[in-house]
Design a protein around this nucleic acid. Structure first.
Lengths: 146, 146
DNA sequence: TATTGTTATACTCTATAACTATA
DNA sequence: TATAGTTATAGAGTATAACAATA
């Protein structure tokens, strides 16, 4: 079953990359842009947790997007350590373009399922995510060290 | 929905990496080992298509695994251009170890679902994969060039 | 002391393009 | 001509560890 999940995701990821590439953004960068579009002025740390990623990973991605002028990092109003990240006007435009370019893919995914099935799939995926999210519930056998 | 799929896969992938890392293999390498374990003596090209990956990507992975002595690439019996790839004895052992190390994860995923739901999820995922697999069914709007 | 972010560094996966040698 | 694999090269994502500045 892990393989089925993997296959589906990889298919999605590759289709997305080729679909987005004319716009100069990758599938992962698009996810980052989405996060910003739906919640502006996040700190890098908030971004990292929201993408279940690493601060230094997020930084690397932000540098690339910044170089394209799609995001801007400004001083945080109250916390001098932090930086707020936001889409630039160009970033918002790019995001809308990419969203449209990805419509194909979303349509295709949904068209293979009924409405009820789509909803169900989401629920099941979320359950699986949640179950994997807490590495706490470790079974016996292999030591989990640390 | 793409995001739900992504979140589930990423959770799986990261848990797998940490679970496998004591054994010195990555989640992706484990998938490759699995492919070899369930169908020995594949050519590199067969491996590539089976993993929906690129020949040069597969080669890069094989070099790493070869350096660890887990796989061996030998001359193809009938086609002098091709090479057959197979697990070494050490590779088979490693695969069994890693399989056990991943049992946790598979248990955890399955335990969050009923039997029927598990089966259903697989079906839905396969449908989604299939729908994305044929970029043929392109809708209008964006040109797909080539 | 704990936290935000940076820096340096390294590794894996990914892919393209030009190439060789076989088929 | 087409195919299997190699080579060179590049870039994206990932992560760890040491660090500075601030809370």
């Amino acid at each position: 079953m892990p393989l089925a999940l993997r296959a589906a995701y990889l298919a999605l990821h590759r289709r997305s990359d080729t679909q987005f590439s004319p716009h100069g953004v990758t599938a992962d960068q698009f996810v980052l842009l989405s996060a910003l579009a739906n919640g502006d002025a996040l700190t890098q740390r908030e971004l990292a947790t929201r993408m279940t990623s690493d601060p230094s990973t997020v930084r690397a991605m932000l540098l690339l997007l910044e170089r394209q002028g799609l995001v801007a990092r400004d001083a945080h109003p109250t916390d001098a350590r932090a930086r707020t990240v936001a889409l630039t006007e160009s970033g918002r435009r790019k995001y809308r373009q990419a969203w449209k370019a990805g419509q194909n893919i979303r349509d295709q995914m949904v068209s293979s399922l009924s409405n009820a099935e789509t909803k169900l799939l989401m629920t099941l995926l979320q359950r699986v995510s949640a179950s994997l999210g807490h590495p706490l519930a470790v079974t016996n056998s292999t030591s989990n060290g640390k």
